[in-house]
Simulated assay, not measured.
Amino acid sequence: MAFSSNSSGGAMSDINVTPLVDVMLVLLIIFMITAPLMSHKVKVELPTATLDKKPEILVPPVTVAIKANGDVYWNDQLMNDALLEQNLAVTVARDPQPQVDIRADNETKYSIIQKTVKTIRGTGIRKVGFVSMPERN
């Protein structure tokens, strides 16, 4: 706070605008430097996205469900490790390759899910997805 040198001894009632001018000059310089960067030199007409209809799924996805006790189901059929690997080998050979969706129980340990995903990815499946419930507010 600035004090006046007058004899009344009260506080100076004028506002000190020097810091305000300093801040405004810095902002002006920043905007002068960044304004040319915001305009693009090459003008390109970007395509507009329209999603009037859903894209067609060529191959239905395969669902792998994992229960909390470690049971693995391939399209609702109980599988052991050998059968799972056989089904994965058949799926890898298909053209186009379907996506494998993993549905895990809420209480399933992550180590079981990780082991299953590692098995799926190890066979050469390119698309692995996880299915969950939508968040409720």
Rank of each mutant, 00 (worst) to 15 (best):
L83Y: 08
W74Q: 01
S13I: 07
V72R: 00
K41Q: 12
I15V: 13
Q77P: 02
T50K: 06
A11Q: 05
S13L: 06
E56T: 12
P60N: 10
L58F: 13
K53S: 10
Y73M: 13
L25M: 12
P61W: 04
L25Y: 09
V26K: 09
L46W: 07
D52L: 10
Y73T: 00
V23T: 13
P55C: 02
E56K: 04
N69R: 07
F31I: 04
D76G: 07
K43P: 01
L25P: 00
A65H: 03
V64W: 06
T34L: 08
A11R: 02
L20K: 02
P61D: 08
V62R: 02
A35E: 03
V64M: 09
Q77M: 14
V17F: 13
D14E: 11
M79Q: 14
H40Y: 11
V21K: 09
A49C: 05
A65E: 14
V64E: 05
L51D: 11
G10T: 05
P36G: 09
L51M: 09
T50S: 10
H40W: 08
K67W: 10
A49V: 14
M24E: 11
D71V: 06
L28A: 14
M24N: 09
F31P: 00
A82M: 04
D22L: 09
T34Q: 03
A11Y: 05
A11S: 06
L83R: 10
Q77S: 13
G70Y: 04
P19V: 00
Q86D: 15
A35P: 00
M24A: 15
K41F: 11
N16I: 01
P19K: 00
V21W: 12
H40G: 04
I15W: 06
M12W: 02
F31C: 02
